[in-house]
Measured scan of single mutants.
Amino acid sequence: MASQGTKRSYEQMETDGERQNATEIRASVGKMIDGIGRFYIQMCTELKLSDYEGRLIQNSLTIERMVLSAFDERRNKYLEEHPSAGKDPKKTGGPIYKRVDRKWMRELVLYDKEEIRRIWRQANNGDDATAGLTHMMIWHSNLNDTTYQRTRALVRTGMDPRMCSLMQGSTLPRRSGAAGAAVKGVGTMVMELIRMIKRGINDRNFWRGENGRKTRSAYERMCNILKGKFQTAAQRAMMDQVRESRNPGNAEIEDLIFLARSALILRGSVAHKSCLPACVYGPAVASGYDFEKEGYSLVGIDPFKLLQNSQVYSLIRPNENPAHKSQLVWMACNSAAFEDLRVLSFIRGTKVSPRGKLSTRGVQIASNENMDAMESSTLELRSRYWAIRTRSGGNTNQQRASAGQISVQPAFSVQRNLPFDKPTIMAAFTGNTEGRTSDMRAEIIRMMEGAKPEEMSFQGRGVFELSDERAANPIVPSFDMSNEGSYFFGDNAEEYDN
C-alpha cells in the first residue's frame, strides 16, 4: 500500500510504541512475548500442572481467558453494579484439565481477579502490559475465525453469508486497541457500523446529549479505520460520505453494504499476525530463551520457528480426527482463516481442507461434555516452508469459486491468482447506482469489472525454506488448481455463540 510509510507498523501498534527502528520493534515485541511466557509459567505453578498438562491447549485457553477477564475493567465495573446470582464479580476462573488415573478430569478453578492481575503485572515488570493482553485477544479471535462461520451475524446486519472472507476479527472485544483495529476485516468494521446506525434509528437519543457526542466521535473513528483499509480513492470518498452524514440511517447502511461487497474484489488491507497460545510461549521462556534479547516478529519467520520446536497437546472428542484438529489450530496460529487453501497447503506441506470436510468441533470443551471418553493427542503445528504475512489485500483475480465463501483475504505475501467468483459478486451490483453516491458507485463498479483474471497478485513473492531466515531465496510455489480455494466452501461450520 502506498501510504505504508505514514502508518505505524503493526509491531508498533502491538507494543504501543512511538516510531521505533526494526531492532527496537523486535525487542519490544519480544518483551511482550516474554511477559506472556513468564505469566503462563507462574500460572502453571499456581495450578500445580504437570509439564504435559501445561502444554494442553484447553488449559492455555482457560488461563488466557482468566487474565483477560481480570483486566476487563468495563465488564468488571458492570458486574459490580449489576450483581447477578451466583456470579462473584471479583473472581474469575474456568475449567482446568488434569490427568488422573490414566483419565482426563475437569476441575473448575476460581481465583481472585486481583490475584491474577498481581501475577500478570509481576510477570511483566510491574506494568499492565496491555500489548500482551491484546495479543491474547487476537489469538482467540484468530481461533474463532478458523472455527466458526459468522453466517447468522452477517444475515442479521443485512449482509450476504458468502462475504465471510471479510469477517476477520469479528469476535475481537471493543477494547483491543490499535492492534485489534489493524486485524479487523472490512466486513467486521461494516458490521460494527451498521449495528451502531441501527441503534440510532431505533433509539432517538442515541446521537443526542453528552453521551451522543461520545457516540458520534466513536462512529467517526470507526469510519476512519474502515476508510484506511480501502485502497481505492472511490471507496475512500464513499467512506467520507458515510462519516460526514448528519443523521446516519438506511442510506448509510446501503452504502456500507455496497462497500463491503466491493471489497470482495477491490480488497481492503487487513493486517495478519501470528499470535500463538500462551502454552507455546511459556515452555520456550522456561527453556531459557530470551525473546527480548533475541527479538521477535509476528509477521516473519519467528512464529514458524517457534511452532517448529513446540509440543502442544489437545483434548480430542471420541469421533474427532486429531489431524483435522491440528489443521484448525495451525490455521489459527498463522492467522489464515480466509487465505486461499492452495497457498496454505503449499506452505504447510500437507493438504489443507475446507472447514466442512474437517471432523472436528471447536477447541474448547463445553462444561456439560462427558470427560470419560476424552483422549488427548499432539497437535501437528509444523510447516514445510515459511512466508511473510501481508497486510495488503493483493490485486484481484477471477477463479472458480464456491457456493460458500466467494473470495479470499490473503494472509501471506505469496504470488498467486486470487480466487473470487466474479459473476456471483457482480450480480449483486445491478441497477442500484442512484442517489448521492452514484458517481462513486459507478466508478467502483467500473474498477471491479476491469479486474483481470490473468493478473498475478504479489508478483514474484515466494515462500522460503525454514533454514532461509533472511528470506534470501524465494520459492514461487505451484498450486494444484483442481483443489478448492475457499475454506468455508459450501460450508456447515458451527455458528459462533458468545
Rank of each mutant, 00 (worst) to 15 (best):
G5H: 05
T6E: 00
E14P: 00
E18P: 13
A27M: 14
G35T: 11
G37Q: 05
R38Q: 13
F39P: 08
Q42M: 06
T45G: 05
S50H: 12
R55H: 13
R55S: 06
N59A: 09
N59D: 14
L61P: 06
R65E: 12
V67S: 11
S69A: 12
E73M: 05
R74H: 05
Y78G: 06
Y78Q: 02
E81W: 01
K91T: 01
I96M: 12
Y97E: 13
V100Y: 10
M105L: 14
E107F: 05
L108P: 14
R118C: 08
R121L: 14
R121D: 06
N124D: 05
G126D: 03
A129T: 13
M136E: 09
M137K: 14
M137Y: 10
I138G: 07
I138Y: 02
L143H: 13
Q149Y: 06
T151W: 05
T151Q: 09
R152N: 05
L154N: 03
R156P: 06
R162N: 06
M167W: 10
G169N: 10
A178R: 11
V183C: 09
V190C: 14
M191I: 11
L193R: 00
R204D: 09
W207Q: 12
W207E: 08
R221A: 03
D240L: 10
P248V: 08
A260Y: 08
A263N: 14
L264Q: 14
L266K: 15
S269K: 07
P277W: 04
V280M: 15
P283K: 10
V285F: 01
A286D: 10
D290Q: 07
G295F: 09
Y296R: 06
N309Y: 03
L315Q: 06
A323D: 01
A323C: 13
W330K: 10
A332G: 12
A336T: 10
A336K: 00
L341Y: 12
L341A: 10
S345T: 13
I347D: 04
G356R: 12
T360M: 02
G362W: 09
A373I: 04
S383K: 05
I388R: 06
T396Q: 08
Q399D: 04
G404H: 13
A411N: 02
Q415R: 14
E434N: 07
R461S: 05
S467V: 11
R470D: 04
N473E: 00
N473G: 00
V476T: 08
S478L: 13
E484I: 14
A493Q: 07
D497K: 00
D497Y: 15
D497V: 15
